[in-house]
Amino acid sequence: MPIETWLTFILVFMILGSIISLEIKDILSSIIAIGVVGLGVSLSFLFLQAPDLAIVQFLFEIFALIILIRAFIKKDYHVEEPRIVNKILIGITVITLCAVFLLSIKLFELLPPFGEPLMKTAQYYIDNGVEQTGAANFVSAIILDYRAYDTLGEITILFTSVLGVFTILRIKSKVKKVTAGDDDEN
């Protein structure tokens, strides 16, 4: 079977999972249905022969699932009653999306066929990468040698996010302590 068939199958699976996660009433089932989307992305990376991305995507899905369950399972959510305005908005969105899709059909015809990208930079890396970097895993050679600036930026983002979480949560706890102290004095 060609790879496009498998990818279409996985895509339909992912769309079904996201629709279920939106519509289902139980919050735990909804979080697990979100996990289906990540699993589909991971599987499609495997079919496209990118095991590095598949590993990271799969692990991060587990991570996100744990965080989501920890964050949301205790809270109670009120069920939103369906209103007429919402239905009108959904109709307008569907009509707009269909119009955009119909108007851009000519653009889709211009796209190159599957597996033949327009960019020819990758061919240079494949031809010269092994001699220039000496790394057997090619993805590693690209993200840490040719594109090391990108990795530096990624690390900086992680660093900044940890700093941000530290700062925000510390401010909150200090405020709590101050208010608690005031209550004791009164």
């Binding site: 590095d52 590993i55 692990l59 991060f60 895993n137 993805v139 590693s140």
Partner: peptide, 21 residues
Amino acid sequence: HGHLTPGGGFGGGVVIALAFL
């Protein structure tokens, strides 16, 4: 083994974070 087999710093780091978790 990030430069030899699939994986690397990011994937292995997430594995270690999950172990502590």
